[in-house]
Write a protein that binds this DNA or RNA. Structure first.
Lengths: 304, 304
DNA sequence: TTTTTGTGATATCTTTTGCGTATCAATTGA
DNA sequence: TCAATTGATACGCAAAAGATATCACAAAAA
């Protein structure tokens, strides 16, 4: 059975007359009769009474007609859904982020506004370290990642800079400097530094180390934190001091204080990275959310 | 767009590979590629990603596929409904009956059992006089009628006899014969007879008149009743006596008594008439209900 | 009644188009 | 670098849809 047959069937049913129906569908009457006959043979029952003054539907034809209308409605719907799918209204988006990136307000804001704009897109979130994120992004097992990149962007990825956060010093409440309003980085000379493992996020790590050197001292690495979000807890139990992006001060950890840095402070960049071969409309739509929400500042770097 | 395109689309979507899909639908790979291309152009968006190792659905394709499955389901359903329609499970049945016929228990029983067997068939009922019923039946504006025919069936109609009711005398309660258990017809000699107009139902009318003549008297026609069901009321106000089919004694009219007739009593036949050119399955199914419910006795008559 | 008109069915020819064969270009894995 | 596998392209053929001419039938008109 073909849709053509069904269109012809509807025409004859509505016109009640093979000649007018043939004219309506743009063919001659004899082939129309032939096609209708084919249709009837395929269904197995006559659909029309051939009367001397036209054709009328049999009961079978009446029942068939009602359902055939539905088919064409469904066909239109299928086409429309395909177009909506092409517009990125469906599908999934796998977003990854590092622990430090999640605390910048832009990240949840972007995800939230995307979900509102495209509620049918299934968004999955994964918090991983920078190394894992970039690995999965290169393998296309994740679509977009929020990272804290170094001054030069990772190679082979499309990177958009979203924001630059100041970094702050984290001290135990009982520390001798804890009552200051702000301190220079050089004040941390000889203090053991709590940092995450360099292998998990080399860029942010290097940023901190470099800043210390610029301030005139070689930092002493104390405890290594498995993830950046637990740095504050390690500081609270007086395993050392640390330097983290300002948005992390929103974590409520008793026993620590966050102090602004005076002078040449390290900066923590926030960026969204995607795969350059990813031409998915969903991913493109997600990138478009950046413009509405975050202050976007493109920066040359790598070959992105 | 044609269903063939959709079948091909499903094959490629499910196989993820043009070659295997082509094999599955029984054509070569190049025409399959061509047809899919046509489909994509018609929808307006690509449905597949052409990868070096096969083809995968785009988001548009995913959305489209889900709806296309529905189309084929609907197509099967349409075919099934056409067959059920051909089996007489849908449609309408216009049933007519005379006032006198409705009181035979077979009539409501047949209609009831048909409605149970074919609940989707729209049954309409019309109470009309015999003349109107036969007129509408000949014009096919009614499908089946219950009538009280004469000894010979109406010409040009298919008639099936269902039952033969005895007739009874109807007397006002205060009548001198009202206290009898049964009376011969001759006892009504000189009594004014309440009857319906002959033009509305000549057969039953003639049956009564003939019976009176066989009983040895010429009946005196008193009041003419507009319809048979109001005869009892006319008798109750003592406008005369009457003779009606026994089932009408079920009407509860105060002030009248129904008496059996002794001897050569008139008989009221009950029959179902349909149009001989009516090959509708619904009508045929209705006739089939007769066998289950009523004692059917075919009688030759007319040319039915 | 006869004639006319309008209906769908049939027969035959034409044209479209779906399909097959052969081949190419691109990518992957050995 | 080469072989294997993928989908796309080119071209010829055959099946099938459609056009034209005509027929048979029945209702309406004369």
């Amino acid at each position: 059975m073909e849709l053509r047959h069904l269109r012809y069937f509807i025409a004859v049913a509505e016109e009640g007359n093979f000649r007018r129906a043939a004219e309506r569908v743009g063919i001659a009457q004899p082939p129309l009769s032939s096609q209708i006959k084919d249709l009837e043979e395929e269904i197995g029952v006559p659909l029309f009474h051939r009367l001397p003054r036209g054709a009328s539907l049999t009961e079978a034809g009446e029942a068939f007609l009602a359902e055939v209308y539905v088919i064409f409605g469904q066909l239109d719907y299928a086409r429309k859904m395909a177009l909506r799918g092409a517009a990125g209204e469906f599908g999934r988006l796998r977003v990854g982020f590092t622990g430090s990136a999640a605390f910048n307000e832009a990240v949840p804001k972007i995800i939230r506004s995307f979900r509102r704009a495209y509620p049918k897109v299934e968004v999955t979130l994964a918090e991983l370290n920078t190394l894992q994120l970039l690995e999965q992004l290169r393998h296309r097992s994740i679509d977009a990642v929020f990272i804290r990149p170094g001054p030069t962007a990772p190679e082979g990825l499309t990177v958009t800079y979203l924001a630059e956060d100041a970094m702050m010093v984290v001290l135990p409440s009982g520390h001798r400097l804890a009552s200051e309003y702000a301190i220079p980085l050089s004040a941390l000379k000889n203090e053991p530094l709590v940092l995450h493992s360099r292998s998990l996020g080399p860029d942010l790590y290097d940023e901190v180390i470099d800043a210390c050197r610029r301030a005139g001292f070689e930092p002493v690495i104390g405890q290594v934190s498995p993830q950046i979000t637990s740095i504050a807890n390690l500081v609270a139990v007086e395993l050392g001091v640390s330097i983290v992006p300002a948005p992390l001060s929103n974590i409520n950890v008793p026993g620590v204080v966050f102090l602004p840095i005076i002078g040449d402070a390290p900066r923590a960049r926030l960026a969204l990275a995607t795969h350059p071969d990813d031409h998915s409309v969903v991913t493109r739509n997600f990138r478009e959310q950046l413009e509405g929400v975050a202050r976007v500042q493109a920066r040359p770097g790598g070959n992105a």
